[in-house]
Amino acid sequence: MSEKREVAPRTEERHSPALVPPIDVLEDETGITLFADLPGVPMDRLTVRVDGDGLLIEGEIAVETPEGTTLAYTEVQTPRLRRVFTLSRELDTTKSDAAFKDGVLKLRIPKAEHAQPRRIAVNVG
């Protein structure tokens, strides 16, 4: 899995400014696990999309503010988080599994069965 630089955004929406969420990526024998920090994103504003060999993670921050609030100091200045990756062929996205809790996305993409490690028996001829 490698990160894709947004050189040629495909859709209009990808032109909008977005923050890059921090991630952890792990790989074991059976697949890849990705964790992404998306604080302030409710479940219904989160998009995890596989498009060919591309993976898009996008979330919109929806923190309710009472009316008449003036922002005095902001470190999170863009209400959108986005990160794009390219996946490799041995990953089976049809069997991927995602969980989202307290602003943390956990995405598991298993390797296709043919790509899983196998012990090869050596016959003594």
Binding site: D37, L38, P39, G40, V63, T65, P66, G68, T69, T70, L71, A72, Y73, T74, E75, V76, D102, G103, V104
Partner: peptide, 16 residues
Amino acid sequence: NIGSTPTAIRIDAFAP
């Protein structure tokens, strides 16, 4: 992020 209203101060800490 820190917001201010006439009646309160609101602090949002992004800690997932």
